[in-house]
Amino acid sequence: MKHLIVDTSTRQNWIALFEDDRMCGCLHFEDKQSCLINLTPGIRHLLDNAGWHIQQINRCSTVIGPGAWSSLRIGLATVKLLCMTNQIALTTLTSSQIIAGYAELMGVTSPTLLTALDAGGGKVYSAVFVWHQEGYQLVGADSWEVPRATALRAVDLTDLTIIGDGAQLLAPYKQAGWQFICQQPQADSRYLRYIAQSTLKYGQITYEHEAVISLKPLYVQPSSAEIEFKVQVT
């Protein structure tokens, strides 16, 4: 199985090619300004180096957020059209699923895991996972709220690990039994291999042709205009 992986959900944009469990190439570039310039040439570069044609790709995986919106949109628009034109199945993972997977890679096995991403403006994106047999399984939906609200929702959870760059925002509300890992996944070959293999885990969704067409990022929060409008109406 030939597999293309595209992750543009953070400032660290990653592209990788796998053939089954073997990584055949990867590259990364930083900051949202360069995402549009570098993404498609990067995919072509990796394909050329591997001696592959895009039509040989069997599966594409991408991260749909929440995260850096412009980069996410560039990434998703790109992989959608690649998949649509070549009948490639597209597997999507959320940013919180990626972080939960990274926790597994780090050997975290606490019964409950809370992923926390710094959403900017003093807010966090968060999601709760529970350990189920061999990995973490998402419980409920991703949230976007002030850290205090997240902490209140988690206050009854003991033996909890909080992981992600938003974990530091929850630190002031620390309860007994809470552990903090205040970092984002380090995108390396282990991480990319995890994404490549994650179709076997929990919660990821694979879309075939018709469903790929209307895919959109997982924003979690409304746009600022919608928020202001709701305030005015209220």
Binding site: T40, I43, W69, S70, R73, I74, T78, V79, T85
Partner: peptide
């Protein structure tokens, strides 16, 4: 800008793909 990049990304993907 954030609108243009969506169409541009789609166009580039099509150019690569086709």
């Amino acid at each position: 800008l954030r609108s243009i990049v969506v169409g541009a990304a789609a166009g580039k993907a099509l150019s690569l793909s086709l």
